[in-house]
Design a protein around this nucleic acid. Structure first.
Lengths: 340, 340
DNA sequence: ATAAAAAATGTTATCGATAACATCAAATTA
DNA sequence: TAATTTGATGTTATCGATAACATTTTTTAT
């Protein structure tokens, strides 16, 4: 590979002069600047970012860790983060943890050893605490997205999840439903806990009592094995007339399972969920959901992150917490109960 | 940040000894190995990948460039690439070019200056040629995915696109359709060209004549402005009874536009497309498509890439070309014509 | 014209790690 | 036991770039 020394030799100057031309620092005569530029072109010079970062002690490289690259919520979020990063002159790379704290840890190691300037993390769950402590210990700024991790203070962008859960339940009760089930993410994820809370509060406000049998806690990620959903559906007695799903993946799994049993949605059973199904849901606007501003999660989170990075030397600001609203989008997957 | 020198000092050995412990090279007594390990733990040592890559001249870092991170075809592909990379001990980072050759160029610059060991590229189009030449010139191995670029020989993983287009047209004709339109990607993308070819061949084989007015070439990416689709729909006379869409995004756009006009799919007009709509399409299996093995694109491409990287010193092998089959999945978006 | 200031360029050390070679002590062999 | 091998560790140079300081050249001021 061509280095600044090759250029320096070819142009008859010192490496430092080449470095100055590249970075537009110091004083350089127009003549040598032109000559150096020309040689750089001729030799197809590409700067070595690693060597550069090694001495500068900063990489202008940021990372975004998401938990499911096939989930439109996260990919939309990624677009927002990307746009904000580009605007500020940072490069952004993505990592996909697959809802798996182990994989996430590997990415954190990569991030630490790549000496990234900062990270945007949608943590896999409470078990992420140890990696986040690792980032903190090594002084790598990070902003949490969508989920909090108990025991770790930081900047964070959240959705108004509890309120979202309430709205969904309210919507269902307004349609006459009284036996409303919840299929939720694992309790090791903060957003799942809030959804359960919101669900319970809304039940109470609607004078419905909370019944444990109507709640299933399942992993957020798509799996081939739907047997726990199957047995849960069998177990509820009397069966619910509506189901709230804790995220888009679970909504899909539930509906698939129901279809497999010949149960029609919403005719036989209503289903509502969290997060849109991506642009493709527009083909046939079906699922009634709480829509979160996915793009904003990424955009605002990235802005906060970069502010943290650049204010590093000044005295530390208090942690910031952005809560984005949750909007109910009524479509067709929840129906009025006939006899209510 | 803690370096091997800090560890060396603390453990009372030389930096080289620490390096040996880290890499398990050379001979080290159990006693010092244990001591060094202990100090590394205590100080939370994390190796600096940049310094390491600088001397080793390899980074064990690979990149995947895709053109649309919100498209399930590419995210599924990404999962495959990720799995294959991990299996071989490489780290994988993602970049999103947004179907934009300029953004793609920025990523290529990043890749070059990061001294990545190789790249998997789904090129934005024929205009990608110059960046690919840049990669080639700098001796960075790459494998193309899904699209070829004229003028650039390389390893490549393709779908059997032309055959796919034929199957779609055959399916429609078997349902009685004779006026079949095509909304396709821009001709600057190789896969779009093949789809057009396949479409024309299939028409001929079915004794239908090719009529230019039934073909629209549009950008693959999602846009807010649907006016060209609108005017195209208006212009066709007599209107088609079926539309083939060149990819999933276009299929969605067309169906949205049709819905906006009160035209029902498939009752009033049939629509078929390329590529699945992700896991979410399973809620309501609607769109009849040619399904490509997205995961395999990524997995096999990554395997080829790594083989290239690791065989680098031995004599060069001829370029390889993998063509993955295209499977027709009949769902509900194309209907039998009543009067045929 | 000459000192002083400013501009242009060069030298050396450094970032954190590893390769290649050097050294020293312990173990083995003759 | 002296000679030799082997094991364990240390030293130095290097990867490609930049900061800090040093030097040379040019310009400006007196």
């Amino acid at each position: 590979m061509v280095t600044i020394y090759d250029i320096a030799a070819q142009a008859g100057v010192s490496a430092m002069t080449v470095s100055r031309v590249i970075n537009n620092t110091g004083k350089i005569s127009d003549k040598t600047r032109a000559k150096v530029r020309r040689v750089m072109e001729e030799l197809n010079y590409v700067p070595n970012h690693m060597a550069r970062s090694l001495v500068l002690q900063q990489s202008k490289l940021l990372f975004l860790l998401i938990t499911d690259i096939t989930n439109p919520f996260y990919t939309t979020l990624a677009r927002g983060a990307e746009d904000a990063a580009k605007k500020q002159g940072y490069r952004l790379l993505f990592g996909n943890s697959d809802e798996n704290a182990e994989k996430e840890k590997d990415y954190v190691d990569t991030i630490l050893s790549t000496r990234a300037d900062g990270v945007l993390v949608a943590p896999a769950g409470d078990a992420s605490l140890s990696h986040l402590e690792s980032l903190r210990r090594h002084n790598v700024p990070f902003v949490l997205l969508d989920r909090e991790v108990p025991g770790m203070d930081s900047d964070v962008v959240l959705g108004d999840t509890k309120e979202g859960a309430r709205k969904l339940v309210d919507h269902l009760t307004s349609l006459g439903h009284r036996r409303i089930a919840l299929i939720n993410g694992l309790p090791a994820i903060s957003s799942a806990r809030l959804r359960l809370e919101g669900y319970r509060e809304a039940l109470k406000l609607n004078d419905l009592h909370y019944d444990e049998q109507y709640v299933l806690e399942s992993a957020f990620e798509p799996k081939s094995d739907l047997s726990d959903i199957e047995s849960w559906l069998d177990s509820m007695d009397p069966p619910p007339t509506a189901i709230v799903a804790g995220n888009n993946v679970l909504a899909v799994e539930v509906i698939r399972t129901l279809h497999g049993r010949g149960i029609r949605v919403p005719d036989d059973l209503s289903v509502v969920g969290f997060d849109d199904l991506g642009p493709y849901s527009e083909i046939d606007p079906f699922l009634t959901v709480i829509s979160q501003q996915a793009y904003q999660f990424g955009y605002l989170g990235m802005q906060m992150l970069i502010e943290r990075i650049e204010e590093r030397d000044s005295l530390p600001q208090p942690w910031r917490r952005i809560v984005l609203p949750a909007e109910l989008i009524v479509r067709r997957s929840a129906a009025q109960l006939p006899f209510s």
